[in-house]
Write a protein that binds this DNA or RNA. Structure first.
Length: 397
DNA sequence: TCTGGGGTCCTAGGACCC
DNA sequence: TCTGGGGTCCTAGGACCC
């Protein structure tokens, strides 16, 4: 019985590593993925990081820091394929694998059995197997809890393993900045710093009641636990993560949003985009076999202020025309005149399996007509590609 | 050409019901 | 007559994560 049964595996600079694994000429030079027009950097390789390039940074800023950085466009299909293969490697170690994104997973090796060895030996086996099969590196944190394992993998980067045994947890945790804790972002970190709580140790030695007043009931209690490394959340392999529902927990919402190439105040342009986004979302709903009752739109203005409006319908729907009609109502209710709009989004929330949706007879033919039309479009899209079939108002003039 | 796109969860107030 | 909970749903905003 091991005292450190949780592994957190994190690919090193995943998107950048995948994009350059067949490019020996790019191994030693700064590379970033994404960050084009109005975009942010999705990933930077380690040579680029030496110049200060980081993911989530604007492409403009990255180029200023490193003018000769090589910019690659992301290939999401490839990322998904590589990710699936990597997750399969993990499942050769234990069935208890929780994928939390394309490039990260928790493994509970307590019940491993499939492969003998201590957690460290299993971690090294994972690392060498991923490297042999996918030619990318990863780092692993090994600990008794998922939160400590996650922090350990970060410390292990790149291409390393770190084990934090239970008796070392506070020594490992307490010197870290509070911003390292999961759930503490820029705002909460600043708030805690203002209170003089700079390190994880400071948080650990602060009364829970004080923390709750400062950052809210839930987060306050949570942070106190994390600061002592005493979170007990289990690895839950049921989580579908990025691989769609299926046998995992169902998605709670699905949405799509897009930033315009340039800001617009043209209602027609906005609505065309909304229709495109709606069609994309409802197709995903139908593919997943779910429908949702609440339609929400997001509007981001030129000054980056962002608002959301939502409406709950009488019944869940996956029908493009119904979602679009609700979205247009929400948009028009804003009463915008000449506002410059940067981004619009459409989201469907409160998802339930489609078979649980009771279609009232009174809704009648029209909705069923639209629903049938959607399904015909889906079939055509599967055969000819999604570019072949789209609403008439999206056709180029 | 500052600031993407996919999500989750929490908070808080009001409505409404018991 | 006055006061008072709790619970749920809906909506808007915000923080956070990858």
């Amino acid at each position: 019985m091991t005292s450190t049964p949780i592994l957190h595996v994190d690919m090193d600079a995943f998107y950048a590593s995948v994009m350059t694994r067949d490019r020996p000429d790019l191994q030693e030079v700064p590379v970033m993925v994404g960050g084009g027009h109005r975009g942010v950097v999705l990933a930077a390789n380690y040579p680029a990081r030496e110049y200060g390039v980081r993911s989530a940074m604007t492409g403009t800023r990255a180029r200023r820091l490193c003018p000769h950085v090589v910019v690659l466009q992301p290939d999401y299909d490839l990322f998904t394929t590589v990710s699936r293969s990597v997750m399969e490697v993990f499942r050769r170690v234990t069935p208890l694998v929780e994928a939390i994104s394309l490039d990260e997973a928790f493994l509970d090796v307590r019940a491993a059995g499939r492969r003998a060895g201590s957690p460290v030996e299993l971690a090294e086996w994972v690392r060498s197997t991923v490297h042999d099969e996918q030619r990318i590196t990863c780092s692993v944190g090994v600990a008794a809890s998922i939160s400590v394992a996650k922090l350990a993998s970060k410390r292990a980067k790149p291409d390393g393993v770190i084990v934090v045994p239970p008796e070392e947890v506070t020594r490992f945790l307490h010197p870290l900045d509070v911003g390292e804790l999961y759930g503490v972002g820029e705002k909460t970190r600043a708030m805690l710093h203002r209170l003089g709580l700079v390190t994880v140790g400071d948080v650990a030695h602060t009364p829970v009641a004080t923390l709750r007043r400062a950052v809210g009931d839930h987060l306050g209690a949570h942070l106190h636990e994390l600061a002592w490394g005493s979170d007990v959340r289990a690895v839950s392999p049921g989580r579908a993560g990025v691989f769609g529902s299926g046998d995992g927990t169902p998605d709670r919402s699905m949405g799509a949003q897009e930033t315009f190439g340039r800001d617009t105040d043209d209602r027609e342009v906005v609505l065309r985009e909304m229709l495109k986004l709606t069609a994309k979302v409802t197709r995903r709903l139908r593919t997943a076999g779910v429908a949702g009752r609440t339609v929400a739109i997001t509007v981001r203005f030129a000054d980056f202020t962002t608002i959301t409006r939502s409406r709950t319908l009488a019944e869940a729907t996956d029908v493009t025309q119904e979602v679009y009609a609700a979205a247009v109502r929400l948009y028009d209710a804003l009463g915008l005149q000449r506002a410059r709009i940067r981004l619009v989004g459409v989201r469907v929330e409160g998802l339930v399996p489609r078979e649980e949706v009771q279609r009232q007879g009174v809704l009648g033919e029209r909705e069923h007509g639209w629903s049938d039309a959607d399904r015909a479009v889906d079939r055509a899209a599967r055969r000819f590609g999604s570019a072949a079939v789209r609403p008439a108002s999206l056709l180029d003039r």
